[in-house]
């Protein structure tokens, strides 16, 4: 089939594409409006949900985590939204308690990281932070229910302050790094290997990573001088232990 071969086809084509374009815009606009409505509806539902379950959100960590996930999925940040503008979603929903909860927790995380820094070089497992905070609460008679997710959110909430606190993964563990100094690749590799048994020896590293003697020695000495490992010189070969394992009740 032949069509639009004459000069007139040119104008016809332009016209057609104009129609298409405006039609496209119309569809897009309708789509956006529809989405916005949906989002509004969803937010309203979420607000209603939050109102009804405010108590659970405050007291139940699993619930809190799931709720926070749901919020971030639709672009509501529980931690920044109530401080950025007054009378916002969260402030209305939960009073300031949700905010206070995370900021108070953040303060305690900072305190704990500071207090343990000498012994662990500023690297501590998220799980340990959680256990220590909960143990302390038990000792002082209160009972708190905090999840690792809460700790992570609390650390996240420190970011705007330029706190130098970050969460890094060493092997399968999530750790809080409270010293701005970055680990070099060899250091991270060794720390990851340490997670398996709690310690490493130079010969284990040489065998498993096929590093030469000097590289192993340098990596271990770097870790020692950053307080990230402790040495035990009473075994057959020096053992380098991660202080992460201090609280884990090692089996002899």
């Amino acid at each position: 089939m032949q069509k639009g071969v004459g000069l007139g086809a040119l104008t016809r084509n332009t016209k057609a594409s104009q129609i298409y374009a405006s039609h496209g815009e119309r569809i897009q606009k309708a789509h956006l409006e529809e989405l916005a409505t949906q989002l509004n509806v969803f937010q309203a539902v979420l607000q209603e949900f939050a109102r009804r379950h405010a108590k659970d959100i405050r007291s139940n960590p699993t619930f809190r985590a799931e709720f926070a996930q749901m919020c971030s999925a639709i672009g509501v940040d529980p931690l920044t939204s109530s401080s950025s503008k007054k009378g916002s979603f969260w402030a209305e929903m939960l009073g300031t308690s949700m905010n206070d909860f995370y900021f108070e927790l953040a303060v305690r995380v900072v305190e704990l990281c500071r207090a343990t820094r000498e012994g662990n070089g500023g690297l501590i497992a998220v799980a340990e932070v959680r256990d220590r905070i909960m143990k302390k609460d038990e000792r002082t008679g209160g009972s708190s229910n905090i999840s690792e997710d809460d700790i992570l959110r609390a650390v996240e909430s420190l970011k705007p302050l330029g706190s130098g606190f970050s969460v890094i993964a060493i092997g399968r563990r999530q750790m809080i790094r409270s010293v701005p100094k970055e680990l070099n690749t060899d250091q991270s590799t060794v720390l990851e290997v340490i997670q398996v048994l709690g310690f490493v020896t130079p010969s284990m590293l040489r065998a498993n990573l096929t590093w030469d003697r000097a590289r192993v020695q340098t990596a271990l000495e770097d870790l020692l001088s950053d307080s990230l490992v402790w040495v035990d010189d009473q075994a057959d070969e020096n053992e380098y232990w991660s202080p992460t394992f201090i609280s884990q009740g090692l089996q002899p």
Binding site: S227, V231, D233, W241, P252
Partner: peptide, 25 residues
């Protein structure tokens, strides 16, 4: 303390900062 079951607790730590924590413990 937890450190009692951590073998390096019984070795004098060469790093000054770590040693300070060890002394305190």
């Amino acid at each position: 303390p937890d450190l009692y079951n951590f073998p390096p607790f019984f070795t004098r730590q060469p790093n000054t900062t770590t040693f300070a924590a060890q002394l305190h413990a």
